[in-house]
Design a binder for these strands. Structure first.
Length: 194
DNA sequence: CGGATGATCAACT
DNA sequence: GTTGATCATCCGC
């Protein structure tokens, strides 16, 4: 497996969000293959960075390839990877659990169904043991590890989830037909092979 | 099953 | 005081 270099994150955020589908994400050896992402940037009303740099979103304007982690709805954490244009990032929404599934189950509870372990940004952070202190940390250094996609994937596009502003933009990307998605894509949404 | 609800934090008005 | 890039649980079919 080839580690993802910093150059991977330059250029169009949507392209990065697409290329991260199929990549392998590990936190302290626990993780799997990314199957769902969303793209955000400073020109996007739905993005935290739309209002400019603040204390919370500072990482979004920091080094490329680092993590932007924030708390949502008072309880859950979400993991983003900072991209080339300032204020842009990719939200990691779901992965296929492959490594350290036992540790994930310890964290999420044994009752949790395996296909729900990492299906959603909050669940994913919980299962991988991500905490807010990792905000701003490099995705290329421990405890993180990121590896490039090896197999070709069919990628589906659709509207982002939980968004009210700019809800019509198709900036959610997923491995077509994957059983590990947080939600199914609307039928007849665009699908491209990569 | 599907929809409603409450949990609980931090940024911003 | 309000509002979220959410999730687990409860309740009604």
């Amino acid at each position: 497996m080839r580690a993802i270099p910093a150059s991977f994150y330059s250029g169009d955020v949507d392209r990065v969000a697409r290329d991260l589908i199929g990549a392998t994400l590990l936190v302290d050896g626990v993780g799997g293959v990314i199957v769902e992402t969303e793209a955000y940037d400073a020109a996007d009303p739905a993005s935290h960075s739309f209002v400019g740099r603040t204390a919370r979103n500072a990482a979004m304007f920091g080094p490329v390839g680092h993590a932007y982690i924030y708390r949502i709805y008072g309880l859950h954490l979400c993991l983003n990877i900072v991209c080339g244009s300032p204020g842009s990032a990719v939200l990691i929404r779901a992965i296929e659990p492959l490594h350290g599934v036992e540790r994930m189950q310890e964290r999420r509870g044994a009752a949790m169904r395996v296909n729900q372990l990492c299906a959603g940004p909050g669940r994913l952070c919980s299962a991988l043991g991500i905490d807010q202190r990792l905000d701003g940390a490099s995705m290329a250094l421990p405890p993180f590890a990121l590896f490039e996609r090896v197999e070709p994937v069919s990628i589906q596009t659709g509207p982002r989830i939980g968004i009210t502003l700019a809800a019509d933009r198709l900036r959610r990307f997923g491995a077509a037909g994957s059983p590990w998605l947080s939600r199914r894509f609307p039928i007849a949404s665009p699908c491209t092979a990569v």
